[in-house]
Amino acid sequence: MIVVYADHDLGILDPLSLQAVTAAKALDADVQVLVVGADGRSTADELGAHGATVVHLAVHDALTDYTPLAAARAAQQLVTELSPQAVISAGTPRGNEVLAHLGALLDAPMSADTVSITLSASGDHEVVRNRWGGNLLETAIVHAPVLLATIAPHTVTAVESPESVTMREFTPALDPIDTAVRVIDRTGGGGGGIGLADARVIVSGGRGVGSAEGFESLDQLAELLGGAVGCSRVVTSAGWRPHSEQVGQTGTKVAPDLYIACGISGATQHIAGCRSAKTIIAINTDKDAPIMGFAHYAVIGDLHSVMPALVEATRAAKG
């Protein structure tokens, strides 16, 4: 049996958690999911539809918002009670964090950003995991009775596999120290823009955009296509755009239907963040830029002349 820690925020399941459930189903038919916090109750149907047999809902007065160490305590209690072969989670910031805490609590190794898992009864599990944001793959042996691993985003497609899911509530035993670090407030947001991670279309700019003002046509195209604006690290370092829009190994990793790379050369650290896009279009003056090896379509030319014309043509095409 496999335990999956589900990453949800105030009852909204992170879609990557469903990919983790699908990855777990490939290892064992019995996938039981840990959901922490009473507000996570709403996730049970979606988890069941993807193959969870049991949802263990950890409810406690102190668990009013995300509380990483307490989530790991709850997982530790499930490990003791259920003796799973593995505990896995989506490779989201929260998934990685909770599994790392669990590793520390169990004094056990943890494989982050994992792309494949071969469980072993002897406790020498083989994993393949990303290095350098997926530019290299590492095969490793995890020496531990229970494998702890997070699943690299977008390496598995979530598939439905309906089970009649049972909900079981439990109250984890928590010390005050377990809840000392928790979300105490939320700021910002509510801007109404589409988040990078969820955007179907991303219009992204790099060094070639040249200035903050140069993003005007990118903003316009993103709006017309119902998408978001992204950028490379050079752009945030120059202060042209906020860091929240940075795509890449140290920014957000995205998997939109369409990624339009404007004036982006395609450094490995940027490619690590956008290689999962279904279609990549590059607009670049340099026909030999590394991005051309990753893009499906290219326009050779100056984005400053291409983009305004593209905005007009797109507007016209939409009628």
Binding site: V183, T187, G188, G189, D198
Partner: peptide, 9 residues
Amino acid sequence: AVGSHREVY
């Protein structure tokens, strides 16, 4: 940073 908002700890 979480999506479009920020969590405070």
